[in-house]
Amino acid sequence: MDSATPAKSRGFARDFVRRSVPRPWRLAAEASTVLIAAVVAFPLYWMVLSAFKPAGEIESAEPRPWTSAPTLESFRRVFGQQEFGRYFLNSLVVAGTVVAASALIAFLAATAVTRFRFRFRTTLLIMFLIAQTVPVEALTIPLFFQMRDLGLLNTLSALILPHIAFSLPFAIWMLRGFVKAVPEALEEAAYIDGASRTRFLWQILFPLVLPGLVATSVFSFISAWNDFLFAKSFIISDTSQSTLPMALLVFFKPDEPDWGGVMAASTVMTIPVLIFFVLVQRRLVSGLGGAVKD
Rank of each mutant, 00 (worst) to 15 (best):
residue 39 V to K: 00
residue 168 L to T: 03
residue 40 V to S: 01
residue 104 L to W: 09
residue 139 L to K: 01
residue 217 S to V: 11
residue 188 E to S: 07
residue 118 F to H: 02
residue 224 A to T: 07
residue 239 T to S: 12
residue 102 S to M: 06
residue 274 L to N: 03
residue 274 L to F: 11
residue 50 S to I: 08
residue 27 L to N: 13
residue 14 R to G: 10
residue 277 F to E: 09
residue 126 I to G: 12
residue 17 V to H: 04
residue 224 A to I: 05
residue 120 F to P: 03
residue 106 A to N: 04
residue 256 E to F: 13
residue 129 L to Q: 11
residue 19 R to M: 13
residue 117 R to D: 15
residue 28 A to N: 06
residue 249 L to T: 12
residue 188 E to Y: 08
residue 133 T to N: 12
residue 219 F to I: 13
residue 217 S to E: 10
residue 150 L to N: 02
residue 91 S to A: 05
residue 53 K to F: 10
residue 115 R to A: 05
residue 103 A to F: 08
residue 196 S to Q: 02
residue 184 E to K: 10
residue 43 P to A: 05
residue 45 Y to A: 00
residue 197 R to S: 13
residue 78 V to K: 00
residue 89 L to F: 11
residue 116 F to R: 05
residue 21 V to R: 02
residue 140 T to L: 15
residue 237 S to A: 14
residue 242 S to I: 11
residue 110 A to M: 07
residue 57 E to Q: 01
residue 18 R to Q: 11
residue 152 L to D: 02
residue 98 V to E: 03
residue 96 G to M: 07
residue 275 I to F: 08
residue 271 I to M: 09
residue 99 V to L: 06
residue 120 F to I: 14
residue 117 R to Q: 14
residue 60 S to W: 11
residue 287 G to S: 04
residue 239 T to E: 15
residue 261 G to A: 06
residue 283 R to I: 14
residue 55 A to I: 14
residue 86 R to F: 09
residue 101 A to F: 12
residue 259 W to F: 14
residue 78 V to P: 01
residue 6 P to H: 01
residue 9 S to A: 15
residue 169 P to L: 06
residue 129 L to V: 15
residue 64 R to L: 14
residue 214 V to A: 04
residue 59 E to H: 10
residue 185 A to M: 10
residue 113 V to E: 09
residue 287 G to Y: 09
residue 236 I to A: 03
residue 43 P to S: 06
residue 280 V to S: 04
residue 114 T to R: 01
residue 143 L to A: 03
residue 104 L to N: 02
residue 176 R to T: 11
residue 101 A to P: 07
residue 127 M to L: 15
residue 182 V to N: 00
residue 192 I to A: 04
residue 142 P to T: 07
residue 163 H to G: 03
residue 219 F to C: 07
residue 107 F to H: 01
residue 67 T to D: 02
residue 63 P to F: 08
residue 144 F to G: 00
residue 83 E to Y: 13
residue 22 P to D: 12
residue 84 F to E: 08
residue 285 V to R: 00
residue 128 F to G: 01
residue 285 V to E: 12
residue 266 S to Y: 01
residue 4 A to E: 15
residue 155 T to K: 01
residue 154 N to E: 13
residue 278 V to A: 13
residue 117 R to E: 15
residue 258 D to S: 03
residue 270 T to Q: 03
residue 82 Q to D: 13
residue 255 D to W: 12
residue 162 P to T: 08
residue 224 A to C: 03
residue 122 T to G: 12
